[in-house]
């Protein structure tokens, strides 16, 4: 029996599904201390789509993207990412899948402080065992695509501004050409203008080749960059809308 349950990926992609979650539940702890973080989430993300997950703190957004990215196991339900169902799959196979198919952008950037910008971008390729020289060359190419100054490629993260660090983080999430990129609050540490630039960049560079983007955010100013917005509350998806106006309209 194969460890990774291969669904018909081509069929799924043809049907316009990059990520499909059905009845997803996640409970932390046991007994009286048990906390239900997800209470039956149904969600579909299409290839080439930027899906935003919004909602108050503690509503389960981060838990949901952790399960979608294969770094957390669900308690119940199904989660299929580009045809791969993680349920029952060994940690090592999940790790390998993540390394090849998923890119991450974190709120705090998580750039390794002792590596230069270019070296940080090369990390996913080095993790895959690629040659350091080639990995750094590829990292430089992708850094140019995110409008990163050539002269700054040898700079350490501490020498970069927040916006520059997030550009490096975006380049790092794309360098290995993943099918899915998950972003956790990518603009929360940035000022408005820089946040807008970063989102423009994400839309321009990341949404290529049928890649799907899931962005978790609190920042209402960037809702306009989404193709669809899933509003979460209390561990489930309240509604999915196509524009911020719909979200605001309904709120009223």
């Amino acid at each position: 029996m194969r460890a990774v349950e291969e669904l018909n990926m081509n069929e799924q992609v043809q049907n316009g599904v990059a990520v499909k979650c059905l009845g997803l539940r996640k409970t932390f702890g046991e007994g009286t201390a048990a906390v239900q973080a997800l209470r039956g989430v149904d969600l579909e993300v299409r290839p080439g789509e930027l899906m935003m997950l919004v909602g108050p703190s503690g509503c389960g957004k981060t838990t949901l993207i952790s399960i979608i990215a294969g770094i957390l196991d669900q308690s119940e339900g199904e989660c299929v990412v580009f045809g791969h169902n993680f349920r029952g799959v060994s940690q090592s196979e999940k790790t390998r899948y993540r390394g090849q198919n998923i890119g991450f952008v974190f709120q705090a950037y998580n750039l390794i402080p002792t590596l230069t910008a270019a070296e940080n971008v090369a990390v996913p390729l080095l993790v895959r065992g690629e040659n350091r020289r080639k990995a750094t060359e590829r990292a430089r190419e992708i850094l140019r695509q995110v409008n990163f100054d050539d002269r700054m490629m040898g700079a350490m993260p501490s020498q970069l501004s927040g916006g520059q660090q997030q550009r490096v983080a975006i380049a790092r999430s794309l360098v290995h050409q993943p099918k899915l990129v998950v972003c956790d609050e990518p603009t929360s540490a940035l000022d408005h203008e820089t946040g807008q630039t970063i989102m423009e960049l994400l839309r321009k560079v990341a949404l290529q080749d049928g890649r799907a983007l899931i962005v978790v955010t609190h920042d209402a100013r960037i809702f306009g960059f989404a193709d669809r917005i899933a509003k979460m509350d209390d561990g489930h998806i309240e509604r999915v809308v196509n524009s911020p106006a719909e979200l605001n309209g309904n709120r009223k």
Binding site: A69, I71, R96, G99, F104, N110, V127
Partner: peptide, 8 residues
């Protein structure tokens, strides 16, 4: 971060 990026 390395683990999330696929380092076993």
């Amino acid at each position: 971060t390395l683990k999330a990026m696929g380092a076993g």
